[in-house]
Amino acid sequence: MPLLSEDAKGVYVITVTPFTESGEVDWDSVDRMVDFYEEKGVTGLTILGQLGEAPKLTSEESRKIAERVIARAHVPVVVGVSAPGLAPMRELADSVMGMGAAGVMVAPPWTLKTDDQVYAFYASVAEALGKTPWVLQDYPLTTNVTIAPKVIDRIVRDLPTCVMLKHEDWPGLAKIGALRATSERGETRRISILCGNGGLFLPEEMRRGADGAMTGFCYPEMMVGVVENFARGDENRAHDIFDAYLPLARYEQQQGIGLASRKYVLAKRGVIASPTLRKPGASLSKADIADVENLLARQARRLTEIGA
């Protein structure tokens, strides 16, 4: 599988981690999940992210999941390797790259407070990872680390193994525009920008210069449809598809039960056997399930109306 590059485009879906009802990794569901995402047309997979419940996994489980997914996938796989220290980060990165991963993703630790600290951290990451291509995960709503466009530009100029930005700032549309402006002026390389936040702003992000999505949603075909139609120049069709799925995507972005609702729908679709989150984790109430079922019914009717 080719290595991740700054030309990457499309949808690199953030995968869930399937668990049995007793909280063990469900390996059969892992296989089924990989097949499902590929059948829906994703460009790549991103595993061991925050919504993949990576912090709840042991180091051995993380390696085994990476090995299983990489061996089964026919698309590039990016692996989240964020860790409190560089040594475990490098250890996991070396391991998954040896398995055939396309690249790795690194989020900043919450302790970073200044621009210089952010730059110094990623300079250390680049040194520790050597030739491994990596994704800068910019998700201040979770990490509490704000990375200004000028800092990202500096990282891109100085650290050639940074090939992608996972843009997950909110509001962040102006940031995409600022980053694209500096590359268009020739002041920095043009790297890939894939966006997160459940795809809630995907059409606007594409219009500002994003190359696609790197996020999760129980209907990855929404993101695939939006990105493919933008690539064809059919923004109206992209918006029609997006609008049909938006109510459910919005529901999925709730703190606490968002991931539980995503897993509920994936289980309902037959992708994973159980919607279980590993403890500590939320579960849906009867009222929550009624909400989701109502949204699914309305979504189905709307998709029929637009012929999608």
Rank of each mutant, 00 (worst) to 15 (best):
R269F: 07
L295R: 10
G256N: 03
F201N: 10
A260V: 03
G225S: 00
Q254C: 03
D234R: 02
G256F: 04
I191R: 02
Y264M: 01
R190V: 00
G270S: 07
R298N: 13
E252R: 07
V227I: 03
G209M: 09
G307D: 07
G270P: 13
M206G: 01
E184I: 11
L277D: 04
E187Y: 08
G233M: 02
Q255P: 01
V265C: 04
V227F: 03
V265H: 05
L259Y: 06
G212N: 04
L295F: 10
A297F: 02
R207C: 08
G225K: 03
Y251T: 01
E293R: 10
R278W: 10
P247E: 10
V271K: 01
R185D: 10
E184K: 15
A273N: 11
F242S: 09
G186P: 09
G281F: 11
G258I: 02
G216R: 00
L194Q: 11
P275C: 04
S285E: 02
Y219N: 12
T188K: 07
Y251G: 09
N236F: 00
T304A: 14
A231T: 09
T304H: 13
R298F: 02
L284Y: 09
A297R: 10
A213M: 03
C218H: 04
G258M: 08
D288A: 08
L303I: 08
E204I: 01
S183E: 05
G233S: 00
I191P: 07
V271T: 03
S192K: 00
